[in-house]
């Protein structure tokens, strides 16, 4: 094993095999994230296939969000954080990406809807584009309509695109954030408890949306809601105290898990 660690990044990638690389959107090897020297997740090894929805479940503080945020390098802003091990996104080591390119490929939707408060609904959708470059007006018009349609929000806001984004309800704001995320053409979308602040009807809409987005994007969703994980995901990963305890097909995790701990968690014995 020591030999592997001494190899350069490229050789390790070759070792994993070209076939594996093209099949999986995300591969992590011995991924450890520490804050102030204390590991929040330890030696996570997992492969997430392209075009699937993967749910990450586990009790609070088990490292779900830490894992998710490592995938698009969000820990960069946290002082005293350290990421070791390897993350391979779309066949390329994360360290080989330009940070802005990586985050365009790997979009993120947050727990609390966070549209830009000083901007209109229209501008919010295309914010990721116009912050970086100038575009033609009719291209942007089309883009706004397409993304809002994809996010299932178009019919509700098409007559008030120039209103403040803050005039929308919480559920609409969250779908606006999803529209904003897909406007920059990502291949992977990370969702950090996207419905935990929403009412049941809005949650249902977001879940439908996730189901519809599945064909075009690889989705990783952190959730506290076990039923939600069962409803929307193909695969489920169970985290506990910083370890990845079990990772397999959602149906198997919920009906016939290998680990005793997983069973106790999904049946509500703790957590």
């Amino acid at each position: 094993m020591t030999e592997v660690q001494e190899n350069t990044i490229n050789e390790e990638v070759i070792e994993i095999g070209q076939k594996e690389l093209s099949k999986n959107a995300i591969i992590t090897n011995n991924l450890t994230v520490s804050f102030s020297g204390r590991p929040a997740i330890k030696n996570i090894n997992c492969k997430i296939k392209r075009g699937t929805v993967t749910a990450i479940i586990g009790p609070s503080g088990c490292g779900k969000s830490t894992f998710l945020r490592a995938l698009n390098y969000m820990h960069e802003l946290t002082p005293k954080s350290e990421v070791t091990g390897e993350i391979i996104i779309l066949g390329k080591d994360i360290r080989q990406y330009e940070m802005t390119d990586l985050r365009k490929k790997v979009g993120m939707v947050f727990q609390k809807a966070n549209p830009f408060p000083t901007m209109s609904i229209y501008d919010n959708v295309i914010s990721g584009l116009i912050f970086n470059k100038r575009y033609k007006r009719n291209y942007l018009d089309e883009k706004v309509q397409k993304c809002l349609e994809q996010a299932g929000l178009w019919s509700e806001v098409k007559n008030r695109l120039n209103d403040s984004a803050m005039s929308l309800s919480g559920g609409q704001q969250q779908r606006l954030c999803i529209a904003r995320t897909i406007a920059v053409n990502p291949e992977i979308i990370l969702m950090d408890e996207p419905t935990s602040a929403l009412d049941p009807m809005s949650t249902l809409k977001v879940e439908e949306l996730i189901y519809n987005l599945k064909s075009n994007y690889t989705i990783v969703i952190v959730t506290h809601n076990m039923q939600q994980a069962a409803r929307v995901s193909d695969n489920t990963a169970f985290f506990f105290l910083g370890d990845l305890i079990e990772y397999s097909k959602t149906q198997k995790v919920f009906t016939n898990p290998d680990e005793k701990l997983t069973e106790e968690y999904v049946t509500g014995k703790f957590g």
Partner: peptide
Amino acid sequence: PHTLREASLALGVSRWKT
């Protein structure tokens, strides 16, 4: 709010533009 900075960074916008 910190979440606004994160939202912008997650869209692939550089830090100074954010």
